[in-house]
Design a protein around this nucleic acid. Structure first.
Lengths: 221, 221
DNA sequence: GCGTAACGTTACGGGCGAGTAGGTATGCTC
DNA sequence: GAGCATACCTACTCGCCCGTAACGTTACGC
């Protein structure tokens, strides 16, 4: 044998994570179809049949990537959102966690989700994650509305939440394309859209981050 | 030869449109990669080499699809938005035209754009269209803000517009997935998000369509 | 220390689909 | 009605890349 350090034997769980890391990277850079299993394997420092042995197929591998990243993202969000807080603070915390996550996984996130949106086999997987987010947001808003004794149709709520999710994803793309932007500031921007809307913007109202518990929307200029 | 009605000879311009129609349909149903040139050709009632003779390559064909649909969409919008009207009415008109267009091209729009978002070669093409929309919206809002003697940073404006475009696209997807929904009503929903925001929603404020020129946001309940 | 199961490899099959070569028919021009 | 451009076809080539068969090698249990 050559000088090759044969210390490479690693347990399955470790290898699987390495493969997923490599897969996320390559899928991100090339897109699902343009990515080749050979490149992923090489990037993971392993040979192709191992990938098949552990993850099954290209499609399964991609789904696993989406699932892992999606789960991590959801965990990052739910970790900071505590029910019981006022709705705008919950929203703010969630957004800050979300953009923080995207900022930390710049290459990972955006392109992976940009990929999954289109391809039919994965629309379901991505749709499930988006559905959870829509649920969370519409639940949050719905409870807040009803807590004030008001009525609102479920479908209106769903559409509203859907739009907010879309806006947030869109700003995430924007963030991924502007590497010098600050995630927290992007979250603030999103808060201005989600909470205040264009009408308030024209009236000079601005939403500012929570510095403790007071200081909501600063009044008109 | 056989009984085949040989009356099929058509001028190039006509055939090109037929090919594009077929391509939009097939790309929509299958996605860019899964779509085969054979299927597109068959659907257009022509043979594959003709497609290559006229449109060049699969990639060029797809780009042409995006460009055509995008142009049509932009035309539908700019046809109804007249500068000089108050900003919220301009926004409302634009949104109504947009959702009307999407509703009328349900299969076309959503999936075509869902496709183009991911695939790298086309991101540019789609990005150009999105940029125009961002420009239009940020221009609209920027003028309105400055008309009131207020200042606003260009980047804030851009991010705001970007978020609105994302929200709108997201609701367009929603509309495409809910065939029984009314485009105009969806536009109204979007208006509630864009103009009022969640804060007003909680206060019971609702945005209602223009019936002529009066009747802006209906006051609190 | 030896069997065995888990880790790992090299090298190939084979399908699918983009793109093309080369040839035929039709209609327009003058 | 000859000539020419344009519309149109059948039948291929060929490369890429997913997935696998068949075969080594390390470490762990007992």
């Amino acid at each position: 044998m050559a000088a090759r350090p044969t210390f490479k034997r690693l347990p399955r769980a470790v290898r699987e994570q390495q493969m997923l890391d490599a897969a996320v990277k390559v899928f991100s850079r090339r897109g699902f179809h343009a990515a080749s299993m050979d490149e992923i394997a090489e990037d993971a420092g392993i040979s192709k049949p191992m990938v098949y042995a552990y993850l099954g197929s290209k499609e399964a591998l991609f789904i696993e990537c989406v699932r892992r990243e999606g789960t991590r993202m959801m965990e990052a969000i739910v970790a900071v959102v505590e029910p019981g807080l006022p709705p705008d603070e919950q929203l703010w915390r969630g957004l800050r966690a979300f953009f923080g996550f995207v900022g930390a996984h710049r290459d990972g996130w955006a392109v992976l989700y940009r990929q999954a949106r289109g391809q039919q086999p994965f629309a379901g997987e991505l749709g499930a994650i988006r559905s959870r987010m829509v649920e969370v947001i519409s639940g949050l808003l719905g409870r807040a509305v009803r807590a004030q004794g008001r009525e609102i149709r479920e479908k209106d709520l769903e559409a509203f939440a859907y739009a907010l999710v879309g806006a947030t994803e869109s700003l995430a793309d924007w963030l991924a394309d502007h590497p010098d932007e600050d995630p927290a500031k992007t979250a603030t921007r999103m808060m201005n859209v989600a909470w205040l809307g264009a009408g308030q913007l024209l009236r000079g109202e601005v939403w500012r981050p929570w510095s403790g518990d007071s200081a909501r929307a600063a009044g008109a200029a």
